[in-house]
Simulated assay, not measured.
Amino acid sequence: MFNTIGPHSDVNPPDIQKVIVEHIVRNEDSALQVHTSLRLRPFSGRFPRPNNKVDYETWRSSVELLLKDTTQSNLYKSRKLLESLLSPAIDIVKHLTPESPLYEYLEILDSAFGTVEDRDDLFAKYLNTMQDNGEKPSAYLQRMQAMLNTTLRRGGVIASDLDRHLLRQFVKGCWDNMLIAELQLEQKKQNPPTFPELLLLLRVAEDKRTSKASRMKQHLNIAKPKVSSYYQGIFVQSEEDCSPSQPALGHRSEIQDLKKQIADLQSQLTRITQKDSRKAKSAARPVAPQTAITPTSQKPHHSRDVNKNTSNRPKPWYCFRCGEDGHIKPQCESEPNPSLVAEKRKQLREKQLTWDIENGASKPENLN
């Protein structure tokens, strides 16, 4: 079979191919311009500034990009500028026509919302800008960069000195000396890095610190139970540390007994104090030698001796959890044994009662 269709070059001559390619390229360029056209964020000029609106310096930087776009007409640039303005900012340029040059719009807006500080004042303010409390070094650097750009537009600095001024002020105003030493920023003053390079160095260092702090926190939280158990072991064990499995009734009864003993000791101490007071008054008056020493006058001394020996009163010698001897509850690893604990507690009360009777610490029944 013979091929009736000629070569591809015969069907599509080079001239026709060239026209087709140029048409496709133009369409792609125009479509790209439509999709990538500059969009200005809204600016209103209100004070205080709403959260969803940008400040004038940020908006002005976007307009400068629009001015440098040579592919767009002046009418298109004016329309984009007007679309981004809200009241009251748009109210002061309503008298201008869309055909007015763009610099006329900017001249009025600069007079109303632009920085009015002198270039020397701006540079002096920049040199006095320090890192705020809680502010990251990278955020501090970005804040200084914005101020330095404003100073540059006002003629306070020249473009070739931006990196040098930025590094010097960062080293001066950043309070993190460890970070400055780690990145060797003092040694880089003669050949300072650019703003993107310095910002990247700071962010990498901050990320390393954050990751290390997170790992340390996680590790310490895992090891925390062992540390707390050690400190629990040195606390003095008391009756209030009893296991919840012990009978609540017996616990309340023991507390009541202790309260009663404390009340008895307080009343006895009051009587001793009163007797000492009466003795002091009687000693001030002349008395016969045979009546100077009476059995009553000896009782307070005996009671004071008893009070001095209260440290010898029997104390708990068993674990409030399992009832075994030789350890206390925070160090106990055995199962709870309420019955054994109750028996040991009963033995303790009997020993304490016997000691109180022998040493005169408890209130006798015929004391009244």
Rank of each mutant, 00 (worst) to 15 (best):
residue 336 P to V: 07
residue 17 Q to P: 02
residue 267 S to P: 06
residue 145 Q to F: 10
residue 147 M to K: 12
residue 349 R to Q: 11
residue 13 P to S: 12
residue 94 K to R: 07
residue 228 S to G: 05
residue 20 I to V: 15
residue 243 S to K: 04
residue 342 A to I: 11
residue 338 P to H: 00
residue 194 T to M: 08
residue 205 A to Q: 07
residue 110 D to K: 05
residue 344 K to C: 04
residue 160 S to E: 12
residue 350 E to I: 10
residue 116 V to W: 07
residue 221 N to A: 15
residue 104 E to N: 07
residue 287 V to Y: 11
residue 221 N to H: 13
residue 35 H to K: 08
residue 351 K to H: 08
residue 272 I to D: 10
residue 336 P to N: 08
residue 205 A to D: 04
residue 40 L to R: 00
residue 144 M to D: 01
residue 70 T to Q: 14
residue 62 S to W: 08
residue 213 A to H: 09
residue 350 E to R: 11
residue 55 D to V: 05
residue 170 F to L: 03
residue 295 P to S: 09
residue 288 A to Q: 15
residue 203 R to D: 05
residue 147 M to N: 11
residue 104 E to G: 04
residue 364 P to K: 12
residue 140 Y to A: 01
residue 19 V to N: 09
residue 86 L to C: 10
residue 217 K to R: 07
residue 303 S to N: 10
residue 146 A to N: 08
residue 345 R to L: 08
residue 36 T to D: 11
residue 181 A to S: 13
residue 198 L to F: 03
residue 294 T to V: 03
residue 234 I to A: 05
residue 184 Q to Y: 09
residue 28 E to G: 02
residue 1 M to G: 13
residue 105 Y to G: 00
residue 70 T to H: 15
residue 368 N to S: 09
residue 187 Q to W: 06
residue 72 Q to S: 10
residue 18 K to F: 14
residue 316 P to Q: 06
residue 56 Y to G: 01
residue 24 I to W: 07
residue 303 S to H: 09
residue 325 D to F: 15
residue 35 H to A: 10
residue 279 K to P: 07
residue 237 Q to I: 06
residue 157 V to L: 05
residue 140 Y to R: 01
residue 279 K to D: 15
residue 146 A to V: 10
residue 236 V to M: 06
residue 123 F to R: 03
residue 149 N to Q: 14
residue 66 L to A: 01
residue 165 H to L: 04
residue 98 P to N: 03
residue 235 F to E: 11
residue 212 K to S: 11
residue 144 M to N: 05
residue 261 Q to C: 12
residue 231 Y to K: 11
residue 32 L to D: 14
residue 145 Q to L: 07
residue 172 K to T: 09
residue 181 A to L: 13
residue 186 E to K: 12
residue 283 A to C: 14
residue 195 F to I: 05
residue 297 S to Y: 14
residue 23 H to P: 01
residue 202 L to D: 01
residue 106 L to G: 00
residue 292 A to Q: 12
residue 228 S to A: 06
residue 19 V to C: 10
residue 206 E to F: 02
residue 229 S to G: 04
residue 115 T to N: 12
residue 249 L to V: 12
residue 318 Y to Q: 01
residue 149 N to E: 14
residue 360 G to P: 03
residue 284 A to F: 14
residue 337 N to V: 01
residue 47 F to E: 15
residue 121 D to N: 07
residue 260 K to H: 11
residue 339 S to T: 08
residue 113 F to H: 02
residue 301 H to L: 12
residue 326 G to N: 04
residue 46 R to S: 12
residue 117 E to M: 06
residue 261 Q to H: 11
residue 115 T to W: 04
residue 210 T to W: 08
residue 153 R to Q: 15
residue 193 P to K: 07
residue 146 A to K: 09
residue 334 S to Q: 14
residue 281 K to V: 13
residue 240 E to D: 14
residue 147 M to Q: 12
residue 130 M to Y: 14
residue 52 N to D: 14
residue 268 Q to L: 13
residue 214 S to Y: 09
residue 225 P to M: 05
residue 38 L to A: 04
residue 259 K to G: 09
residue 89 A to D: 00
residue 287 V to H: 11
residue 28 E to K: 08
